[in-house]
Simulated assay, not measured.
Amino acid sequence: MSQPWSFWLGWAATLIIASALVWGLMFAPVERLQGNSYRIIFIHVPSAFLSQAIYAAIAVLGLVGLVWKMKLAFFVAKQCIPVGASMAFLALVTGAIWGKPTWGTWWEWDARLTSMLVLLLLYFGLWALHNAMERPESGDRAAAILALVGVVNLPIIKFSVEWWNTLHQPATLKFTEAPPMHPSMLIPFLMAIIGFYLASMAWVLMRTRLEILQRERKSRWVEDELNRFAEGQ
């Protein structure tokens, strides 16, 4: 079922993200204090949200794989890594672009920025562990343990602007408060977040399907599937 799901999720994500970016970058009003520079929020915030959510998912999947010995959990966790790393890198790059006109510098060793950089390095470490191990199963377990240890960085990212005096602004969206954004900004902002989540789900499904075929390529069921595909062609 992952093939049709990834297809429809991918198309839905494309339409939603395209609509959100056109609305947010071209038609949303200019922000009172930051001018047009705030428009990068439609890319920066969704990618930052996703980089943290995907890492949390990797940790949960790793725990499931370690405790219940579910191979599929390890497969999904591994293929979440490049997706999460891409989101973390995009969040850092767009944050730097946003920081230049706002703070007057591309980079500051701010608590939020530094902890996000640590998150990106954790993603690199997870991928390196997978590639360093001779047996894929060993890489799965080693990466799962690192992911669980690295979870401690997520609350640091989340609460860094409250625990320390940082340049980074507080969260725009809070469950306990009404959004401070005008609906003409808020709607495309929420659309962008939803679109990024859907795109990442489609990406992970496609990568996981290839991972399963690669890991199980010598299994009988893969040969049967390939024969069935060849006959259908």
Rank of each mutant, 00 (worst) to 15 (best):
W203S: 07
S19V: 10
Y197R: 05
A178D: 07
A171Y: 04
K69G: 11
W68I: 12
N36K: 11
A77W: 02
L148T: 12
R220F: 12
M26C: 12
M185P: 06
A147G: 10
L50H: 02
V22T: 14
S138R: 07
R220P: 06
G35R: 11
M206K: 13
K218T: 07
T176Q: 08
W127N: 11
S19K: 07
A28E: 09
K100Q: 06
Y38Q: 09
I194A: 10
G95K: 02
I194H: 05
Q34F: 11
Q169E: 01
G24I: 02
A77N: 11
E225M: 15
A59N: 08
L72W: 06
P183I: 08
L15R: 01
K100W: 05
Y38V: 14
I97L: 12
V161N: 01
K218Q: 07
L198M: 15
A13I: 03
I194C: 03
A28V: 00
S6K: 10
V161W: 00
W109S: 00
E31G: 05
W103I: 03
L92G: 08
S160F: 03
P4S: 10
F175T: 02
M70L: 06
G232L: 12
R141E: 15
S51I: 01
A48C: 02
R32C: 01
R228A: 01
V118I: 15
K78P: 13
I156D: 14
L154R: 03
R220S: 15
F27T: 10
L21D: 13
S19F: 13
P179Y: 04
A48E: 06
T166G: 05
A12V: 11
E211Q: 10
S6P: 01
V151K: 01
P4V: 04
N36V: 12
F196V: 15
A144N: 02
P188C: 10
G24Y: 09
S200V: 07
L25S: 03
V93L: 06
G99P: 06
A85N: 05
L121D: 04
P136C: 00
L186F: 00
P4R: 07
N227K: 15
W98P: 04
V204E: 05
A57R: 08
I193D: 12
L66M: 08
A199E: 02
Y197F: 14
